[in-house]
């Protein structure tokens, strides 16, 4: 198969590069190919969007763990003890 540069990414390839793209770990040339694909591919735009949505949802999914009053009291008395 003959191809002219720059070789266009397939969707499979874009999906594989999505984290490197978001982490800004692609070379400028790779980044350009990645963004060029996004210009015309609605499926990949949606895929990238869903990865971003998943990241946001992960951040929204925090279980709110708090220390018990007892643990906090212990820390405080320890802090007082250290001052002496």
């Amino acid at each position: 198969m003959t191809r002219t540069a720059p070789i266009e990414l397939t969707c499979v390839e874009l999906v594989a590069l999505v984290t490197e793209y978001l982490e800004e770990a692609l070379t400028p040339a790779e980044r350009e190919r990645f963004e060029h694909h996004l210009v015309y591919c609605v499926g990949c735009i949606e895929y990238l969007q869903q990865i971003r949505d998943a990241m946001k949802l992960a951040g929204a999914a925090k279980p709110a763990e708090v220390l018990t009053q007892e643990a906090e009291d212990k820390l405080l008395s320890m802090f007082r003890g250290l001052k002496k």
Partner: peptide, 17 residues
């Protein structure tokens, strides 16, 4: 079109998100 979406992802709604 080998390696391109056959069944692309569908956008999630704001309500879902």
């Amino acid at each position: 079109w080998e390696g391109h979406w056959a069944a692309p992802p569908q956008r999630w709604t704001d309500d879902q998100l």
